[in-house]
């Protein structure tokens, strides 16, 4: 299930994998959040994995987008787990903020 800039793959009964593509335009944050939330609700998902494996660097803007999406997911009772964060991205993010993020993290889909 593709939309502008991301692909949502159902995983089992109530999970989904969100894979952002290079064309994801996070300046359209409001539209994107609505679109993701709508799709998650349509699938009755309670858990969404956000795949970060293609992002070698996460800047403040992207981090803010992840946090806002995580807050929106919490609002509809969906856990957002970011997976496969690259060491370079984690390194940069840890230097940016010491506060815990709004989303959960895991090594990969297996946890």
């Amino acid at each position: 299930m593709s939309a502008a800039g991301f692909h949502l793959t159902p995983l089992g009964q109530s999970s989904a994998l969100l894979e952002p593509s290079r064309s994801l335009d996070i300046s359209r944050v409001e539209e994107l959040i609505e679109e993701v939330v709508r799709r998650l609700q349509a699938r009755r998902a309670s858990l969404v994995y956000y795949d970060l494996s293609d992002l070698s660097l996460i800047d403040g803007v992207y981090y803010a987008w992840l946090n806002r999406l995580a807050v929106a997911c919490k609002a509809i009772n969906v856990r957002m787990v970011c997976i496969s964060m690259q060491p370079t991205a984690a390194f940069a993010l840890a230097g940016m903020t010491l506060l815990p993020p709004q989303f959960e993290t895991a090594l990969d889909l297996t946890g």
Binding site: C82, I83, S84, M85, P87, A89, A90, F91, L93, A94, G95, T97, L98, P100, P101, T105, A106, L107, D108
Partner: peptide
Amino acid sequence: SHHLIQMVRAVQLMGS
């Protein structure tokens, strides 16, 4: 202590 917390956060961000 700042560096320590920074390291802990980085590890957590990786999912560990």
